[in-house]
């Protein structure tokens, strides 16, 4: 499986994606900048990413907790998600996300 990650400079990276890993973990494992300060416990918003429009409705809907934690993020858009809450599954093969100032600055 693949994950496509666009960095803050606009460059896209193809990363090997492991099933059942979170997108945050996959990005970190793929050596892309990923602060993820709380380590994936949906507590800090420093794994904030933008999800490509065409993938948005394939993702599980946001829980209240994720929506609340995103309050600690900046430049939040309708396609904003916390990548620690997105679990990689075969139907997400090829998912495209873009890093944010929160996650990689």
């Amino acid at each position: 499986m693949k994950l496509f990650v666009t960095d803050l400079e606009g460059e896209q990276h193809e990363i090997e994606a492991m099933p059942n890993w979170t997108v945050m973990e996959i990005i970190r494992d793929g050596d892309q900048p990923m602060r993820a300060e709380c380590g994936g416990s949906c507590a800090c918003a420093t794994c904030h990413v933008y999800v490509a429009q065409e993938w948005l409705n394939k993702l599980p809907p946001m829980e209240d907790e994720e929506r609340g934690t995103l309050d600690g993020g900046f430049e939040v858009e309708p396609n904003s998600r916390l990548s620690c809450q997105l679990i990689m599954t075969p139907d997400l093969d090829g998912l495209k996300v873009t890093l944010t100032n929160d996650s990689s600055n």
């Binding site: 300060e37 800090c44 918003a45 420093t46 309050d71 993020g73 900046f74």
Partner: peptide, 10 residues
């Protein structure tokens, strides 16, 4: 005056 309260970072 602007007071931003967006939580803490390390």
């Amino acid at each position: 005056s602007l007071l931003p309260f967006y939580g803490l970072t390390m």
